[in-house]
Amino acid sequence: MPPRTLGALAGALAWLAAGCGGAGETTVAVYAAASLSEAFEDLAARYEAANPDVEVRLNFAGSARLAAQIGAGARADVFASANGATMGRVAAEGRTAAPPALFARNRLALVVPAGNPGAVTGLRDLSDDSLVLAVCAPEVPCGALARAVLADAGVDADADTAETSVRAVLTKVMLGEADAGLVYATDVAAGGDKVAAVPLGPQTRFNDYPVAAVSDRAVAAHFMDFVLGPDGRRILSDHGFGTP
């Protein structure tokens, strides 16, 4: 092998290996529901700025999947769930180090593609079968919330697709493939100018997010305090979350 090839190979290996080494002295592993992605990335950056010796490792997925990972023995320090039921299961398995605390509140939003091609003006329009409607599957928190809200409004809507992730609902609306979608209020911003929210009026149903330390390391409690503290509240609020 010519020396230059060897050198290139060594360089490539060094580059590949670079991501594998640990940088900070202490790390805190935070498992957060997918709908918290942008907010928790901000939180982590702010936390790391305030605590330079700590590295925050984020893991985003559906709450149920995260709970399953924690149940299977994943080394998580903090778990932020999108609903109480999932957190309840983790607590029941004895994985939580301290009682969970509610830290954020989300509500349902009705989104349509820019220009509103389906001329959707409210929940009532969703009973129209010719409309392509995307919602979350009933088994995931956003789907449970959507069905409860529709039931409250007395709307019999047949969803064309039941997504396992709220962001998949948003994607279909952004692409204009669905005429309407039911997502979290916090997701509307992620849709940019490709989606518009249809006002739903005052709401009575919410999704409250609990957070809990799932290891007894000091840094876990410290990060939780940060989330529940004034900085945390402000960042969550900036991303559209309410207070429980």
Binding site: A64, A68, A137, E139, A162, E163, T164, A168, K172
Partner: peptide, 28 residues
């Protein structure tokens, strides 16, 4: 399938989609 055709019981919900949904729903 789930991206393009969505997840609709009886029409597009194949076994893999049903498996994923059960998994997401915390029903391993």
């Amino acid at each position: 399938t789930i991206t393009f055709a969505g997840n609709h019981p009886g029409r597009t919900r194949t076994l893999p989609l049903a498996i994923a949904q059960a998994n997401e729903a915390g029903q391993p």
